[in-house]
Simulated assay, not measured.
Amino acid sequence: MTPQAPFPAPELNRLTDRQTARIRLYCVPPSGTGSEFFLPWVATFSALFDLVAVDLPGRGTRTGEPSITDIGWAATGIAEAIAADLRHRPPADGFYAVFGHSFGALLAFEATHRLRSSSRTEPDLLALSAVPPPNRDGLDDHIAHNLGSGIAVITEIMGWEAPADDALARTVYTPFLADAVALLHHTRQEWPPLRARLSVFGGLDDPMVDPGTLHEWGACTTADARVHRFPGGHHYLRTQVAEVVGRLTDDLLAAYRSPASG
Rank of each mutant, 00 (worst) to 15 (best):
G212T: 04
E216K: 03
A219G: 03
A167V: 13
L147A: 14
I157G: 02
E190I: 14
E190P: 03
P193E: 05
L183A: 03
G218C: 04
A223S: 15
S149V: 08
L147H: 12
T222P: 03
R197M: 06
D179Y: 00
Q240E: 04
H142R: 11
L237Q: 04
D206N: 05
L198F: 05
S199H: 03
I157C: 07
E161N: 14
M208P: 00
T174W: 05
L168E: 13
A144M: 09
R195Y: 12
W217G: 00
Y236N: 04
Y236A: 03
T222S: 15
T174H: 11
M158V: 10
H235L: 14
A162M: 15
W191R: 14
T221Q: 09
A180Y: 01
I157V: 13
L237C: 04
V172G: 02
A164F: 10
H228K: 09
R197L: 06
L177S: 08
D179N: 13
W191S: 02
P175M: 06
H234S: 05
L184V: 07
G202V: 05
H234F: 08
V209G: 01
H234R: 05
G232D: 09
G232I: 04
T174Y: 07
A180P: 02
G212R: 03
L237R: 00
A152E: 15
Q189V: 07
G150Y: 08
H234Q: 08
P163H: 03
E161G: 12
P193F: 07
N146L: 06
Q240K: 05
Q240T: 05
P211W: 08
A167L: 14
Q240L: 04
V181N: 07
D224W: 09
I157D: 06
G232A: 08
P192Y: 08
F201S: 01
C220M: 12
Q240I: 04
A223R: 06
G148R: 09
L183V: 04
R229K: 12
D206F: 01
L183C: 09
A225P: 01
R170Y: 10
R195Q: 14
A182P: 00
P231L: 08
H235M: 14
T222N: 10
R226V: 14
L183S: 03
A178G: 05
H228M: 10
R238K: 13
E156S: 14
E216V: 01
V172T: 08
H228D: 11
E156T: 14
A196E: 01
A152M: 13
L237E: 03
R195G: 14
L237D: 01
T187E: 14
A162V: 15
F176A: 06
P231G: 06
T187M: 10
N146R: 10
L194N: 01
G159V: 08
S149I: 08
H145C: 12
E156R: 15
R170D: 15
G232F: 07
W160G: 00
V200M: 01
V227Y: 04
A164S: 14
G148L: 10
C220T: 12
Q240P: 02
H185F: 07
A152T: 15
L168V: 12
H185M: 09
H142I: 09
Y173N: 06
V153M: 13
Q189T: 13
H142M: 07
W217F: 06
D206R: 00
V200N: 00
D206K: 00
A225C: 15
D210W: 01
G202R: 03
P231F: 09
N146D: 10
R188W: 07
V227N: 01
L183N: 02
A225N: 04
A219E: 12
